[in-house]
């Protein structure tokens, strides 16, 4: 037994252990379950509308009721996103926000928040440019808890998942209405943290959610998946958020928040986003 493994063992029994930090996502969901509540997971793009607001926005999200934050990594070619999130990516890229900058923002956020899980969401190429291994090491160091790379499907992810696992970062995967059973089982084996169920066909920001479909599909998914399931795409108001929360473990809201950021001025940005999150939170928690 080498020194590292002894350390690991010791820290496992310690109150101040590293496990506190590495299992933030699982811990968050366990805590919510005890209280019989559902997670609210807002998405913002790092660096939108300007990098100087990102950390403030993240704290605002937490104060207003977010349980986990999905932080978008801007990319020049966001193929799976609708116009709203594309624009947020373009705004961030005007300020040359790189993956490295995003990691630095997370590290900065961690100085004042050690509990809220951060999930990075983005596209493969910035990760490839940094290298999967050095990305994972750096992400862990900066306090990232999970990563969802939209264009790394399970087929192309065996090394990627290993790499994240080594650095105790959760590999988050998407499932969609068209995912068939065999793939659901495959994803169930690879995924950690939670599953992100894309509730409709199309790109982010679309607005025709069918709750009956979501309910049917989630029942199917639960036969194979023990992880919490978050639902995203098409959730634009409290009523839908509440309805989705009743079916799932977490509600993911993205484009609606970006729209709020777009229409806010610098002075009311934080309060507008805060009110929106609070309204969603209240709707989800309402009995």
């Amino acid at each position: 037994m080498n020194l590292d493994s002894i350390k690991n063992l010791l820290s496992f029994f310690s109150e101040q252990s590293d496990t506190k930090r590495t299992h933030r996502i699982a811990k968050t969901f366990a805590g919510l379950k005890e209280q019989n509540r559902k997670a609210l997971i807002p998405f913002i793009t790092a660096g939108d509308p300007h990098p100087k607001y990102t950390i403030q926005l993240m704290h605002q999200l937490v104060q207003s009721g977010a349980d986990i934050i999905e932080l978008g990594v801007p990319f020049s070619d966001p193929m799976a996103d609708g116009p709203t999130i594309q624009r947020s990516s373009e705004r961030a890229l005007k300020h040359h926000v790189s993956l490295d900058d995003v990691l630095k923002l997370v590290a900065e956020f961690r100085k004042t928040n050690i509990n809220t899980p951060i999930v990075l969401m983005g596209y493969a190429n910035p990760v490839e440019a940094l290298g999967q291994v050095s990305f994972a090491a750096k992400a862990r160091e900066c306090g990232v808890d999970g990563v969802l790379i939209v264009d790394y499907p399970p087929e192309e992810s065996s090394e990627w998942v290993q790499c994240l696992e080594q650095h105790q970062i959760d590999a988050i995967f998407l499932l969609s209405p068209t995912t068939h059973q065999q793939r659901i089982e495959q994803v169930a084996k690879m995924a950690k943290g939670y599953i992100y169920y894309v509730s409709l066909k199309g790109v982010t920001g679309a607005s025709h959610l069918d709750l009956q479909d979501v309910s049917t599909k989630l029942n199917q998914l639960r036969q194979y998946i023990s992880l919490p399931i978050g639902v995203g795409f098409g959730i634009r108001d409290g009523v839908t958020a509440k309805a989705v929360a009743e079916l799932s473990d977490a509600v993911v809201v993205g484009s609606r928040i970006i729209e709020e950021i777009e229409k806010s001025s610098e002075s009311d940005l934080l309060s507008n986003v805060g009110s929106l999150i609070k309204a969603l939170r209240d709707a989800i928690d309402k009995n």
């Binding site: 799976a80 264009d151 499907p153 995967f173 998407l174 499932l175 969609s176 068209t178 793939r183 894309v198």
Partner: peptide, 21 residues
């Protein structure tokens, strides 16, 4: 069979496109 030419090619798309492909 996975569409790879050495390290290149493949199916790097979002889950929503997988079943169509």
């Amino acid at each position: 069979k996975n569409g790879h030419f050495g390290p290149y090619g493949g199916i790097f798309v979002a889950e929503t496109l997988i079943s169509a492909l």
